[in-house]
Design a protein around this nucleic acid. Structure first.
Lengths: 112, 112
DNA sequence: CCAATACTTAAGTGTCCGCTTGACAATCAA
DNA sequence: TTGATTGTCAAGCGGACACTTAAGTATTGG
C-alpha cells in the first residue's frame, strides 16, 4: 500500500510550518482548548483552526469536542512516522560509511 | 548565534517538500552528481539545483564541485537537528503521561 | 579548436498556502 | 431569554514557492 508515502508526506508538510510546530510544542506539555491555544499566537482563531485541521489529518494531533470546547492533544502516531523516516535514512547512510570504512581497512591490509 | 530556531525551521521546511525528501533518500545511499540525481526525477535540472540550494542551506546536504561536476552527499547535521526536535517533544509528552499515571495510581491507593 | 557535457543564473508563471474577514451555529451562564 | 463564549464555514487576498524557459559559463574529450 503506497499510502504510507502519503502519510509521511502529510506529516512533513504539517511540520514544515513554524506555527504548526509551535502548536505541537505547546501540545506536548498537555491538552488544551482551541482558544487557549490561539491566545499566545498572534493570528486569528480561524487560522489556528485551519492549522489544527492539517495537524489532525497528518496524525500529529487529535481533537475532541465536548460542549462548545474542542480539546486538542498530541497524537504520537505522526511524530513516530517522521522519526522513523529520519532514522531509516540515517541508518542507511551509516551502513554505507561502515562498508566504506571496512573496504579501506581491508585494502590497506592487503597492501602490506 | 542566530538561534537554533532558525536552523530547525530551515530543516523542517526543506523536508516539507516531497521532491527534496526523495533527494535525501537517494543521497542516503551514497554521493552522486547533480545530473544523475536529476535523471529519475521528472523535473528540470534547474529545478533540482534550486532544491539542492535549499537542502544545502538547511544543513541536510553538502555539495562539492570538482571540475564541471558537482557531487552531492548527505550531511547528518540537518537530520540530527530534526530528530532531536521530535524526540524532545516526545519525551516531554511521555513524561507528562508518566506523571498523570502516577497521580492516578496514588489517588487509587489513597482511596482503599 | 570544437562540440559536448555539466551545471548556473535570471526572469517569468501558475498554484498552493497561510491568513483575514465576516457571517453563522452551538453552548453556557446569569 | 439574553448575552457572552467558543468554535465553524466560506470566500477572497497576497505572497511564497516549485517549476520552466532561455541564455550563459566552465570544463572536458576528441
Amino acid at each position: 500500500m503506497p499510502s504510507q508515502q502519503v502519510a509521511i508526506d502529510r506529516v512533513f508538510h504539517a511540520l514544515g510550518d513554524p506555527t504548526r510546530r509551535s502548536i505541537v510544542e505547546k501540545l506536548s506539555s498537555g491538552p488544551i482548548s482551541v482558544s487557549r491555544l490561539a491566545k499566545p499566537l498572534e493570528i486569528t482563531l480561524a487560522a489556528v483552526v485551519q492549522h489544527l485541521r492539517v495537524l489532525e489529518e497528518s496524525g500529529l494531533v487529535r481533537t475532541e469536542k465536548i460542549g462548545r470546547v474542542r480539546t486538542c492533544r498530541i497524537e504520537p502516531r505522526g511524530l513516530t512516522l517522521a522519526e522513523r523516516w529520519i532514522s531509516e535514512r540515517r541508518s542507511l547512510w551509516e551502513r554505507r560509511l561502515d562498508r566504506l570504512g571496512q573496504f579501506l581497512v581491508e585494502e590497506d591490509e592487503g597492501r602490506s
